[in-house]
Amino acid sequence: MSSVVPAVKLHLNKREMTFLVPLYIIGMVALISVLISLVFLRGGSVPGSEGWLTGSRNNPAFLWAFPGYLVYLGVQSIATTFPFALTLGATRRDFVAGTLLWAVLTSAYITVILAILTMIELATGHWWSGFHIFDIYILGLGDLSLLVPIVFLGSLTCLVVGGGFAASWVRWGARGPQLIATALGLVIVVGVIIVIPSAESIFASFAAWWLAVAAAVAIAISAVGAWLLLRPATVR
């Protein structure tokens, strides 16, 4: 009797957190973006002008608003849900598989929502007012072939990496995340030391797919790491 599907349902059980809070965040980002646009409008900026477009498209609000929540969602998906899942009778294997499946579903949900809103924004001439909320650089400038991998892989990375850190906490207590963060910091610093002489040529040949590969690697390492950490973990 597999408990993968029940484990997915366990995560989806908190419907507001999974389905509504992302909508609240999108709504808040949209509201703040509109208010800032109004400030510029009242300051004399002209919708559709080069300055207006450059400023609107550089809107980083989603970058500030979403990752924090998604990492938290990933952390709680293991830190406080793992003990309850085992109480209900899930195996560790099925819990990790169900958690990964839930992360994929949640990322897909957020991707679909943002894709739909982007299409509406484009279809309405930016909400009949020239306001850019979703047609922005970090979401692929209205190009769904960019938006979908950006949002899906970005969301999935936040959720799974958050889960990986939480798994280390379940396994080793407070020292777990500290150890992983320290190791990660060391790897990054050593990597920078190695590549810094070639930084100019690396930046010159940078391609967006590098980020997709980096996200895939982070997701794979975090998911496998979570499984390896949780398999021998005991419930405290």
Binding site: K14, M17, T80, P83, T87
Partner: peptide
């Protein structure tokens, strides 16, 4: 098997 610990933890906001 059913086993609920005396210090059982529940998911956030449950």
């Amino acid at each position: 098997i059913s086993y609920v610990r005396d210090n059982q933890r529940y998911p956030d906001d449950y």
